[in-house]
Amino acid sequence: MDTQRRKFLKMAGVAALAGISAPAVVSLTPGVTRAAAGHGAAAPAAEQAAQGIRLGLLVDMRKLYGQPELMNKAINACHRVHNVPQIDNPKEEIKWLWKMPYENVFPENSSYHAAKNTRESDYLVLCNHCDEPPCVRVCPTKATFVLEKNGIVAMDYHRCIGCRFCMMGCPYGARSFNWMDPRPYIKEFNPEFASRMRGVVEKCNFCSERLALGLEPACVEAVKEVGAIVFGDLNDPHSEIRQILDREHTIQRKPSLGTKPSVFYIV
């Protein structure tokens, strides 16, 4: 990892921690005015002036096609560092990062005769850390909120009352609920990160706790060998992720809903 990158990640991480310790103030109306995305119209990528840090993630599927073991590596790394329990029953399972077929991940983009890769490969799915997150809008206790310093949609597991309204609001199915005590299902406990109790919702946190230590997100690190996942500041024109976004055609999940996801895909 080059020094500039390390510096940025540290900065973002400190910002993340500052956001956690400060009282949660949710900004629902960012100061920037923007043209409202029309119903059904894809939200344009260049939608707002760069303001502060907005962390984003890019999945370059070209480097993952035909390599499900790489995706599993990223998933396992994520679930291991965050003490995500391994519950095999789909009714009660907890997922922060997982993989699914194209038609499930991009139901609005399905095509009649899809390409071989599109048909046969799975795609990585995680919280989109939306710029306009519906989950934050519906939460009745501010237990989920946007960290203003870096745009991460964070959770306070100690405030969540478990009403699951955020799971109704999330159009990406990114949130999981602890239907029972998760601790017996944690295979190897990582003392660096808190485990959750039953009755609360959880999801991907863009590795806030690792950013604070100057580390990259666990999934990014896990597939570093092929560089399939790129993480950085979407508002910094010099960041690696931004340069790829400027160069390549990328897609987002369900852009017509106006949530402005911070996760991008090259397919």
């Binding site: 939460c139 009745p140 405030r159």
Partner: peptide, 26 residues
């Protein structure tokens, strides 16, 4: 029914301690 439905019923008062006008549940 609401109390039966929430996962952490003892935290129910968080609805009042942290009032959130943008939530319809509030």
């Amino acid at each position: 029914f609401i109390m039966a439905d929430i996962g952490q019923p003892l935290r129910g008062l968080n609805m009042i301690l942290h009032p959130t006008p943008n939530s319809m549940l509030f």
